[in-house]
Amino acid sequence: MQLIIRKVSRILQNHNNLTAVYALVVIIVAAIGLISIAAGEITFEKDQLYPKTINPDSPLNPYDRGGSPFVPADIKAQYPGNFPAIGYITGYLSPFATALIKISPYFGTTIVAHPGGILDEILYATRGLDTIVETSILFVAFTTAMFLFRRDEE
């Protein structure tokens, strides 16, 4: 017994084993996850927010969510009341996007990244706080990297 404790504490006291110990913990939790899936505890809730619908004939495929410029689309958000202009961003198409639609039916992904579209609606407006945190994380990480880089240059 004492030997086991001694062996375990020898592993734990070395900080180089920190990730290995943590990896073991994650593997154990993942095993619990497999068991709970087998027990049928984890079931998919079919009533999801912002569901995806696909209309292969639309030139905006796979991001056609209805609406048109300055006419709001119907969006299933968590709290639609918190953002009164909901649906307008999804419906918006810039003149450039309108031109792209006429050229080819295969530019849906380019158009949704262009200003307007469902992803902009989620990323900028209804879940905009996530994007604030995300860009702040990027900012802080680059500050750290540049600080270390500059200090080395001197």
């Binding site: 619990i32 709970s36 505890e41 984890i42 998919f44 809730e45 999801q48 927010l49 968590q78």
Partner: peptide, 23 residues
Amino acid sequence: VLATTGTLSMWILFTPEVAVPLF
């Protein structure tokens, strides 16, 4: 949490009607 309950908002998750799996 999102897959099993259909929401991420704690206002709904904290109500007793919604069960979040142990995993």
